[in-house]
Design a protein around this nucleic acid. Structure first.
Lengths: 340, 340
DNA sequence: ATGAAAGCGCTAACAT
DNA sequence: ATGTTAGCGCTTTCAT
């Protein structure tokens, strides 16, 4: 390449990296190099650049559940932001323990400059510690804990849980159940559950233990959890607030199977605001999280941390909002009533 | 690291790369090196390895629609297979033209040893040509064309379209519409459409042009396409075969909004077999593709091509199968009839 | 304004 | 069985 343009390798590097120094090269040679690069389809070798710069210009997104559209939407936001900064995002799923080990090894090998951790599992963060010491920039999503070395982006899930429950109470419900996540690592109830409890307490409503069902945060988990709820309760709750939209969709399915109408026999509210929620039967009332913004901010924090490695970590909490659709009974796509 | 174990850098490399040569190192030093690596948390630098070996041990998956669970499931299969071989998969979405350009540049920079192209857009393959010349192993999914340099994995979508349509015909339908994909690059009708037409022709059924609606292959696209279909047709079709499950789910939504019952007023069949289809209202009849196997085979073909760069490209076609659920009217989760 | 040279952390060929 | 050496393709002083 350098030979083809009749200049030294160093000059090629300077030209191609532009923005380095203003007028380090005559515009004549500049053009010559650019032309040569173009005609040869030359692109600097990434491994060599990374080795030399000790920077890969890539960020890994650890996605705990790739089948959850919520994360697809967060990733989309991250990807857009990364692209603007000349970074690339690579997504790593951690379906198995071995996969996790492999990813950690990769990170330790310096594959990425930063990581966005989608998993709330504290063990993931713990295993990242050695890599952080080597300068890896880590941003955690919705992490329920403190860590001086990692920045955290949260959405106000407590407020979301409160909003959802408050809305159901406002609709006249008093027997409101809750489907929550069974993550083994969850030492304490989730924020969403705390918000639910706050709203119930505020309204002077009791929450019998059997109203809170702990299950997998998937569609199948929501289906199973709702069945479990009905199996447990002598007098059926009239509404249910689900941990996320996936569980809510599963609950919708279980209810239909059991020939119960939504929202007449049971109202359902989800959480996340995934696009699909606008197309379910009935359309899903939910608490919308700013998914794209979460992704964007995460990338921004990674880049900030890379720019100023010594600076202290940041914590951001983004607001959520209630999206009222049909499944809670407050709204209908029909003038009145409904029929599937 | 080498110093810490009291051996040379070369020995460390040999020990850590194991499987290279059988007994190249005494088990005493082997153990010493392993212990040192372990206590130091040493992991060989990936950029240096890649630069030296001219191999990155990573494969890029180009995902044209990250929000489609179909691809999430294919990726899961690919990831599992890659992990076994010591490779990592990194997923690249190509939402915008700029994103595509950036990814192509990355590939040209040698970021990955291979690419799995999920997009059927021939332009993507065309842009990959220079990278292929440099030794990039490329496998395309469902690519409707020939290319001596890339291996292709297909599922038998023509048979799938035929199966779906045949099933509806068997149920007594004669007025069967079709929602298809609007991809601008699709020079010819999709395989699924061809199968649909074959079944219709075989049964001696006409296919008026207005029965085939071309729309975006998303949930929103399916919703819009179904409305379009009803707007176009004086006498309503009694069934619709959708390009994929996403479109089918959108169609389900549109039908409910229009107060039409599924399957009584209109039967719906999807395509792909995404997990969500078992939880929709009504549960979705669909043509299931072997999603995980597609991912596995894709990785295998990439690895094969890397092992034997000179060998000719392969083409595989995997079978599909019809999954009968409620939306076509042949089955019900209730003993009889239904009500959302 | 440009080139020469060193070196990022590894692996493979060649010594010993 | 182990160490020495060269070099993968870049970027970055330091010379000129």
């Amino acid at each position: 390449m350098a030979r083809h343009a009749g200049v030294s390798q160093a000059t090629v590097s300077i030209v191609l990296n532009a923005t380095n120094t203003p007028i380090r090269v005559s515009s004549a040679t500049r053009l010559r190099v650019l032309a040569a690069a173009d005609s040869l389809g030359y692109v600097p070798n990434h491994a060599a650049q990374s080795l030399r710069r000790q920077r890969t210009r890539s960020i890994t997104f650890i996605n705990p559940s790739p089948d959850n559209p919520y994360f697809a939407e967060v990733v989309a936001g991250a990807q857009a932001a990364a692209e603007k900064a000349g970074y690339s995002i690579s997504i790593a799923a951690i379906p198995t323990r071995e996969a996790a080990v492999q990813i950690l090894a990769h990170l330790n090998a310096g594959t990425s400059d930063g990581v966005i951790v989608g998993s709330r599992d504290p063990r993931v963060l713990a295993e990242l510690a050695p890599a952080i010491r080597r300068g890896l920039a880590v941003v955690a999503l919705q992490y329920d804990g403190e860590d001086p070395l990692v920045s955290i982006i949260r959405t106000d899930r407590e407020a979301g849980g409160y909003l959802a429950t408050r809305h159901l109470i406002g609709l006249g419900h008093t027997r409101i159940a809750h489907l929550t996540d069974s993550a083994a690592y969850a030492r304490r109830p989730t924020e969403r559950t705390a918000g639910y409890r706050r709203a119930m307490a505020e309204a002077g409503l009791q929450v019998p233990q059997e109203w809170i069902v702990v299950g997998g945060n998937t569609v199948a988990g929501g289906d199973a959890s709702l069945r479990e709820l009905l199996a447990r309760t002598a007098e059926r709750p009239s509404a249910v607030f689900a941990f996320n939209d996936q569980m809510a969709i599963g609950a919708l399915h279980a209810l239909r199977t059991l020939r119960l109408r939504v929202p007449e026999d049971m109202a359902v509210v989800g959480f996340d605001g995934i696009g699909l929620g606008a197309f379910t039967t009935p359309e899903l009332t939910t608490v919308e999280q700013p998914r794209v913004e979460v992704g964007q901010r995460a990338v921004q924090l990674v880049l900030d941390s890379l720019d100023a490695p010594s600076s202290s970590s940041t914590q951001v909490t983004l607001p959520v909002r209630l999206v009222v659709r049909e499944s809670c009974g407050a709204s209908s796509i029909f003038s009145s009533g409904r029929c599937g």
